[in-house]
Structures are given as structure tokens and as C-alpha cells.
Design a protein around this nucleic acid. Sequence first.
DNA 1: CTGAAAGCGCTTACAG
DNA 2: CTGAAAGCGCTTACAG
Lengths: 341, 341
Amino acid sequence: MKPTIGDVAAAAGVSRTSVSFAFNKPDRVAEATLERILAVASELGYVPDPVARSMSSGRTGAIGVLVPQALPSMVSNPLFAEFLAGVALTTESRELPILLVSPLQGSMERAVSGAAVDGFLTIGLEGFRPTVQMLDARRLPYVMVDSEPADGVACVNPDDVGGAYLAMRAVLDAGHRRIGILGIQSPPPHDWRNYTGTLARRMSGYARALAEFGIAIDDVPLVESEVSEESGVDATRELLEQDPALTAIISMSDICALGALEELSRRGLNVPEDVSVVGFDGIPEARWSRPALTTIAQDPIEKGRVSAALLVGLIDGTHTAAHLVLDTTLVAGESLAPPTR
Amino acid sequence: MKPTIGDVAAAAGVSRTSVSFAFNKPDRVAEATLERILAVASELGYVPDPVARSMSSGRTGAIGVLVPQALPSMVSNPLFAEFLAGVALTTESRELPILLVSPLQGSMERAVSGAAVDGFLTIGLEGFRPTVQMLDARRLPYVMVDSEPADGVACVNPDDVGGAYLAMRAVLDAGHRRIGILGIQSPPPHDWRNYTGTLARRMSGYARALAEFGIAIDDVPLVESEVSEESGVDATRELLEQDPALTAIISMSDICALGALEELSRRGLNVPEDVSVVGFDGIPEARWSRPALTTIAQDPIEKGRVSAALLVGLIDGTHTAAHLVLDTTLVAGESLAPPTR
DNA sequence: CTGAAAGCGCTTACAG
DNA sequence: CTGAAAGCGCTTACAG
């Protein structure tokens, strides 16, 4: 059987208290005793049980990253991989392992309720009421990333409004007036006016820029699409049916923008000569596409680093809940130019 | 304060046993009692504490993935990301969250000793004696991936010998006789004869193919290099100094092979006309390089899936330690052709 | 169907 | 410097 603290105590002829001290507060034990205990412990192959330790200390020493989808698809998403790398940047120095928590049989609540962590980082937990309630029930600090800021809860978001404004402004400044928007699918009835959080903020950024040019966003054709290249292709087709004379397409995600590039090329339309395309996110693939995508970049590594730092502060009690907004920047590719038709 | 099982029991007027049953074995409690307990629990916002649960059940319900380097660099490695996705494929269905365990202040032993998991998957834990000892001390099942198989411990490896043989055979069959090897840096004194595990296996595959053509591997120039593109560049330069008439370079990693491509192009040498290059691993970048790299592909997703399945079997007691070897295949790119000089 | 009690393996005031 | 004892929040035979 696995040796316990009691076995070591017995073999060394001391109390369990002393064994515990030997491992955790060595200076509270006499030199000779310390050495004896350590010798016995290593001979027996004793390692303090982490669970028992958490039980009495009240700390697990791990933080949970709650992902809204099945892990396999998340992990291969470059935006998520970089976010994780950023998280690791801060947890590494704090010696906190990361627990990847994904829905159990589709249930995020079950996943949250069973995770042995000191706090959570949630990704895109937009509108998941029961999950948020479970998070609260756990009485653990958490930081919501890519969601709708709520009172009293810590949030970290990219500057969606500012980024979207930048994107639309760039298109308008280039002279475009017949613009189409590739939206992201919202719950039925699929009306962007029901957007919340990230999507709503991006729309409001677009609207603001349009308003400066006297254009009402309601007059701009918008087609919703799932976040996949294929869906982007379909949505682009639909957009062009709604207004065949479009000179620019603004997409709420790079992935869909890539689909737009594809569909345009299939139709023999040149980018940016015939139609300009601007995306959002700044995924690596956007740089390799031909033409390279003009897009709004967020910094996922920084987002991860900052979110984790905020969570650690919450756990330590050195921070209080804050709403952080991270800069977004326009990355000029080759997919935006003045209209020619 | 956070409500405990005792608070619920008191409020519902039952014993803690009944509350526990209500959550874990609902059929052992009368219908009416069950409802009352659940109602009280949800009113109080009671969630069973995962740590306490692990304490008495002896299960944490998580598996640890032990990585040998700082997490930030690992996560952005596509080979690791795909491996993780594969692991998730099997843990997801078993409802096991993944704990990412990286060295704490450089100490893998500390990381292993403190991780609350039911088992470990180790990556490339080649020659880390103390870490393996700690793994044994934890008395937890573990599976070693990309290491040297040892008696009684479960291992999963790609077919390094077979893959390396394939690579060297392809080069020899194409007619090359003046071949250089881009090795991977081993501990001082940097002699490939000290290679163990993965590296030793790859070398033996090369040696076998060479032997079939009457070439002794000792007569083949080899330069060791760190696994980075820049180091690959340097090593290639050195290799060409050792034998300027080389017609083919075989690299033990794609990353370094990419460096070779770069250095060759700088020197105005065309690939594959002047010098052929063959890599190992099959990373995605190998497909985008120009020319596309001919390489030996392993399937990291499958490797992850299989390793995790083996570990889960070990944890459940339904498997015993096994040594698994996964297929590697030659992926024909454009970087290998018959020699012209 | 329900409950009293022991046990999981530690940590930590508190006394001595 | 050292130890007896309580406590962390659950689960689970065992009785009733």
C-alpha cells in the first residue's frame, strides 16, 4: 500500500505533526529529527497526498479554463492555443497547473461543479445562465473572457467596439459605400438586433462608423453565418444575391472572411480590385491567405496573460473584479483598396 | 460561508448520509425526501466539494499531461496541440478533465508530486530519472509517450526505426550516396552514439537502410542541432563544410529540415535539383514550405488518443502496461529527387 | 428507507 | 522542539 504520513511517523518514531512540519516548515523541526524523517520518508517512498493536502489547506493550487466546446476542436484553434499560452505565461510563474474543463456529456454545469480548482477562466460564456449560476454556487473567483460584462464579475475583452469601428472606418475611408456584413450566427430568429456581448459590440462599432458617413446600419445587408470557412462561402453567396453591386465585405470573423475570399475567387471577382474584404481576429491564416487579409487583430497571448493575472489576483485577494478591455489594431493586408466599379 | 453537506442536512431535517445519497444514489432515498433535500440544496446553493469527494472516493477524476518544457512554448507547438486534441478525444467521453502539468520552478518532480490526478501521460520524458522515480512514488499509473520503453511501464511511440528506415531508403533508392544527417542535440559530449530513446531508434533506422547499401553509418557526416529553424540553418552550413559535395540531407526533425531548406536557398542551391532534403515528423508547416518537404509523418492525434485510452485502461484496471508502436508513413513532398551532380 | 459513526490523509492552532 | 487532538467535507459499510 501507499505509505501515509502515519507510516512515516511510526517508522521515524515521531508524531505526524513533525512529519508534516518536516515537509512544510522544516525550521520548526530539530535538524537531526528533520534528517531522520526525510530519510525514512524517502526510504518508504512517501509523497504527501495532494488531495489530502488540498482538503486541509483549502487550496487546490490549480486554475480551471472552462471551454464551451469539445476540447479537441478548441485545442486546434490557433486563437485558443495562443490564449492558453498566454495563460500559462502567468500561471507558470505562480506554479499553478491548468485544468482544461470542457462540457461533460454536454453539460457545462456538471463540469464546473466537479472541477477541483481555485478559480475559473471562462471563454465566450455568453448567455449560459445555468453555468454562470453554478460558477457562483462554487463560490470561487472567476474571470469571464469574451463575454458580456456583468456587475461585480471580472471580465476581459478585446476592444470589439473600437476594432469594428476601425474596420468599417477603413472601408468607408477607402471610398466604399455599398458594403455587406458577414455576421455570426445568433440564436433564432437570427436577427443581429438580438446580438449580445462580443457580437453586439462589434455591430455597434460598425454602426458608429457608418453613422459618421450618414449610413444607417439597418440599410446595410447582413447575412449570418457559422464560424467556418464553408459557412462563410455560403453566406458570401447570399450576400452577393442581396446586393450584386457590393464593393466591400466586412466579416465579423477571419474564418468567414477566408470563405468570402474563396467564394469571390470562384466567381472570378478579384480582391481587392472588384471587392474588398476585411476580417476580424487576426488569426495566423489571415496572413497566409492570398491576398493577405486586412483584418482587426487582437492579441490572444496578452488576453490569456492578463486574464490569468486578474484571476490570480482575485484568488489571492489582492485584486477586485475589474473589466479590462484590450487594444485591437488594424492589420493592413492586401484585401482592401478603393472601389473601382 | 459556503454551505456544506451538514448545512443541507440540518435545513432539510435529515442526516448527512441522506444528503449524500440524494446526490449520488438517489434511489436509496424516498421520493419525498429526495425532493426536499434537492430543494433545500438548491435554495442554499449547495454544491458538493470536489476535493472532499476525491478525498473519500480516492479518485480525482482528472488525468495529468506532464510536459517537459514551459507550457507557453509547448502549447504553440502544433505537434503538441494535435497530441492534446487526441488525448481529449478519449478523455472527453470518459469525462476526465486534463491537467496540464509543467515543471514548477524548473522542477518536474515537484510538479508531479503535487498534481491531483488519477494518472499521468508523460511526453518525451527521456532520461529524467528523478522524475520517473517520483512518478513511481506516487503509485499512480502512467504512460510514457516518446521515450525509451522500460520494463513494466506502458509506452506509446511512433515507429521511429521504421520511419527512419523509410526516409533513408527513399534517399538511397533515389540514387543518393553522399548523404548528410541533421541530428538532434544530445547531452555532451554530443555523440550520437549516446542517443537513447527516440533519437537512438531513428539512428538505427537510418543505419539499417545504409547497411543495405553497404554504407557504414559512421562514415556518414552528422551534425547535431537544437530543434529550431535557426539551429537547422547553422547545422546545415556545418554539414556542407564537412562535405561540400553532399547531394542529400536527412533531418531527424522537420523543424531543422526547414532550416536546411533556408540555408540551401541562401547558397543558391536548388532543392531538390542540387540537394535533396527529407525530414521527420510531418508537421503542418512541412506542407507549406517551398518546396514542400518530403518527410516521415506520424499521427499525433492518434498518438494522443491511444495513449489516453491506454492510461484510462490502466486506471480502470482493465488494461495492463503495454508497449505500443504507431505507424509512420512517408509523405512525398517535392524536396526529394535523384541526384544530378 | 434512514442515521450514527468511522474513515479518507493531511494541516494547524494549542499545550507542554 | 514535539505531540495530542480537532478539523477539512465528503462517502460508505453497518445497524436499525
